[in-house]
Design a protein around this nucleic acid. Structure first.
Length: 631
DNA sequence: GAGCACTGC
């Protein structure tokens, strides 16, 4: 959610070097006039008084109220940065942290990186002079490692709290804890109109301060009966809007690349058949994995007489804003990750989205003028079949990394950690069990020296252990590259379905299949890890093409993920679960007796992704009871 | 013989 009108032109959504061009519709008015015209302005003094009076304040503010840009400036004007104390403001996304900081620096007429700065992974745009610091929530979490009481901050603002990202949820617990012995620290929790009572309740009945936003009304329409084929229903709805409704662009929410491609093809086909009987319809897909130049197309203005339809994933729900959208079509589904701690398996499944998510989608129609939202489900389904809010990420994900971080912050009793919504007990137990097996925790559940070194690396514990083991096997150069490649979630390869043919030359692959963005990300991760090697005392050495030491180092981190060939597939050593080699693997046909895998993912079957011939004999897996740990 | 929603350190 952009807190002020911005228009972002031609950039890659994950481009860390992107430039955001701020379009200020009131450029001719002075900046101070614009600041005074924001909905939050009349509340300035009351807000400051409330902050003065209470240590923790929940701020309920709609998009466009100006809370993200103005509150830190009000606090600065009120003296909260005296003596060089900082005001920190977290955002769930990198782009938001950067663009908001740029806007505030402009409003204050200072150079970005001086008094106003931002801090995101791979990029620290702050200096000793910085007093207003915007950052990603994960970045503030990492700061706890170097400054556990956040002593240099006078105010911490957790913005977009309603999104309930994993990092935000952990921050809640940590900040609530330090606020007890730092009465001078002010904590502001800023959220959209949603669940503010829960935030208040969590922070010991902190008062809620409400700020109205600036939005246009959106009329919501439901179907009379459930739609059997929502893809077809989308296509029909788009064409109906196109033919019967006044000008304005259309935004369609689908669940993934495949659906989006199918929908775009169907729309183009129908338009071709209708020919000149209808006005021009520009059909544009958008999803995170789409190459940047194609993504940029959605931002080009619609030519007069034509209409634009953007077919998007959830990326258009929060991460980016497209100007000119008047109509939203919402089939009510999204892909959601879930994690089964009993098997350690992740899955990505199409599920009905929550009411909160549906309302967020509808809101995308009311940014520039009054809009309409067509929901392809019944009003009854909205009321009775959809969940109120999306399950917070902390309850749907592997917590190995988080548990290691919390342990290194000295939080030993994780079961009683003050989570706003606690993760499943099994998730914590599995994470602790794996950390113990890796040697990061001792039998009392305390962090070992190895664990302390592992916590320094911003990667999953097994990867971290692998990197540390590479020291012993003298292959840190190679292992660091493997770790970087594995921590890039996306495949490095881009596989458009019309180009799946044989006979790839190296050059051709280079030109056609490598995702530049993923590759650059892997390189950034590798650079960052290499920079941390000094601190964890691992020397950079190469094994010069000998793969044995590399496999040993991988095994040292991944012995927990061992599988043995058995009838028709593999059985995991840990859970005796039947799993399969992914057909894209180079070992798909070889079927070796023992394998080590990076992750288990359920799609059509239980697949091991990224497999390796293991050195299982080095680390026989012992089943160790976890019951006696102080966890 | 399959298919990767979206973020983030």
């Amino acid at each position: 959610m952009m807190p002020f009108p911005v228009s972002v032109c031609g950039f890659s959504l994950r481009d860390t070097s992107l430039r955001v061009f701020i379009f200020n519709p009131a450029a001719l008015r002075s900046i101070q006039e614009v600041r005074r015209s924001l909905p939050i302005f009349p509340y300035r003094d009351d807000l400051l008084a409330a902050i003065h009076e209470h240590q923790v304040l929940v701020i309920e503010g709609e998009t466009g109220s100006g809370k993200t840009t103005q509150i830190p400036q009000y606090l600065l004007e009120d003296g909260y940065t005296k003596g060089g104390m900082k005001i920190g403001c977290t955002q769930p996304r990198r782009v938001a942290a950067m663009s908001v900081a740029a806007r505030v620096a402009e409003e204050m007429s200072v150079k970005l990186g001086n008094e106003v700065g931002y801090s995101i992974r791979f990029e620290d745009c702050t200096s000793e002079r910085t007093v207003l610091k915007y950052m990603t929530d994960g970045m503030l979490l990492r700061e706890f490692l170097t400054e556990p009481d956040l002593a240099s901050y006078s105010v911490v603002i957790i913005d977009e709290a309603h999104e309930r990202t994993l990092h935000t949820d952990i921050l809640f617990g940590l900040i609530k804890d330090i606020a007890r012995f730092r009465p001078d620290l002010k904590v502001l929790v800023a959220s959209a109109t949603l669940d503010t009572e829960r935030f208040s309740c969590f922070f010991d009945d902190a008062p809620v301060f409400r700020i109205p936003g600036r939005r246009f009304p959106v009329d919501i329409f439901y179907t009379k009966a459930p739609e059997a084929d929502y893809l077809d229903a989308c296509v029909v709805s788009v064409l109906q809007i196109h033919v019967t409704q006044p000008p304005g662009d259309i935004l369609v929410f689908l669940t993934g690349q495949e659906e989006i491609e199918a929908c775009c093809e169907m729309l183009q086909e129908r338009c071709r058949r209708l020919g000149s009987k209808i006005a021009e319809l520009l059909v544009l897909p958008i999803y995170a994995n789409l190459p940047s130049d194609m993504q940029a197309k959605i931002f080009t203005p619609t030519p007069p007489g034509a209409r634009k339809v953007v077919v998007a994933t959830n990326i258009a729900e929060t991460s980016l804003t497209i100007d000119g959208i008047i109509y939203v079509i919402d089939p009510g589904f999204c892909k959601q990750k879930s994690y089964n701690a009993r098997t350690g398996m992740e899955s990505l499944i199409v599920t009905p989205c929550s009411r909160a998510s549906a309302n967020q989608r509808a809101g995308r129609a009311g940014r520039v003028a009054a809009g309409k939202c067509f929901r392809l489900y019944t009003a009854w389904a909205f009321k009775h079949e959809m969940e109120e809010t999306t399950i917070p990420e902390i309850q749907r994900t592997n917590l190995g990394n988080v548990v290691l971080l919390l342990k290194s912050l000295g939080i030993n009793d994780l079961i009683h950690f003050d989570f706003m919504d606690p993760p499943p007990h099994e998730t914590l137990v599995l994470a602790l069990e794996q950390l113990y097996a890796l040697g990061a925790l001792n039998h009392l559940g305390e962090l070992t020296k190895l664990g302390r070194r592992m916590a320094e690396l911003p990667v999953d514990p097994m990867l971290s252990k692998m990197v540390l083991a590479s020291e012993q096997y003298k292959c840190s150069e190679e292992v660091l590259t493997i770790a970087a490649m594995l921590s890039v979630n996306n495949s490095i390869f881009y596989r458009p379905k019309d180009k799946v043919v044989g006979g790839y030359s190296t050059q051709w692959c280079y030109e056609n299949f490598i995702q530049f963005r993923s590759m650059r990300r892997a390189r950034d991760v590798r650079d960052q890890l290499e920079g941390l090697m000094d601190r964890i005392e691992v020397e950079m050495v190469s094994c010069d093409g000998d793969n044995i030491p590399i496999r040993k180092a991988v095994t040292a981190g991944y012995f927990y993920h061992t599988a043995r060939l058995s009838k028709g597939g593999y059985k995991t050593v840990k859970h005796q679960q039947t799993v399969y080699v992914h057909p894209n693997s180079s070992l798909f046909e070889e079927q070796p007796r023992w394998l080590i895998y990076h992750e288990l993912v359920f799609t059509t079957k239980e697949f091991m992704r990224q497999v390796l011939l293991g050195f299982v004999w080095i680390f026989p897996l012992k089943k160790r009871a976890a019951a006696f740990w102080t966890i």
